[in-house]
């Protein structure tokens, strides 16, 4: 029942773990009127405790990695994670640099990967909708 409700209005938590801002401004552009995902109930949550889908952008740095783990733990189940951009997937151009742990999946479980540098807003919205499918299918049972 709860999962069904969330399907109609998944709230987003956006965390920049060390991005160049390219993906961040595209995530921001994806929630604005031209693309208008609010018609599907998608909007930014004011607090991680209200969020359903975590959007991770940027190569995960060691310092931000700890915060990312904490943020993920604060979100209530069921939850889904979307990694946006080449950096959040594998480190992108920064792969192999000393302050990085590279991809977001090294720190938290990732459900949907959206490739691109940066991905287009349409692709980000598609990733969010794919993540809602996971929410529909049930939580993680914890």
């Amino acid at each position: 029942m709860r999962n069904k409700l969330i399907r109609y209005s998944p709230w987003l938590v956006h965390f920049n773990t060390g991005a160049c801002n390219g993906c961040d401004i595209e995530v921001l552009a994806a929630i604005t009127p031209l693309f208008d995902p609010e018609r599907m109930g998608v909007k930014l949550a004011p607090n991680p405790r209200h969020g359903d889908i975590l959007i991770v952008t940027g190569a995960v740095t060691k310092k931000a990695g700890e915060r990312l783990k904490r943020l993920y733990d604060q979100m209530p189940s069921p939850k889904a994670v979307v990694a946006v951009g080449a950096c959040a997937i594998s480190g992108g151009v920064f792969a192999g640099s000393y302050p990085l742990v590279s991809g977001a999946d090294k720190v938290i479980p990732v459900d949907v990967y959206v490739p691109g540098c940066p991905p287009r807003p349409e692709a980000i919205i598609d990733g969010i909708l794919k993540a809602t499918k996971k929410l529909e299918g049930g939580g993680e049972g914890d």
């Binding site: 151009v93 920064f94 640099s97 302050p99």
Partner: peptide, 23 residues
């Protein structure tokens, strides 16, 4: 600050002149 430190300057020393444009 420090959440977003990616070591770009060091990475620039490791890569070639042309690849550094993109880094």
């Amino acid at each position: 600050t420090g959440y977003n430190h990616r070591g770009v300057e060091k990475l620039g020393e490791k890569n070639s002149w042309v690849r550094d444009i993109y880094i």
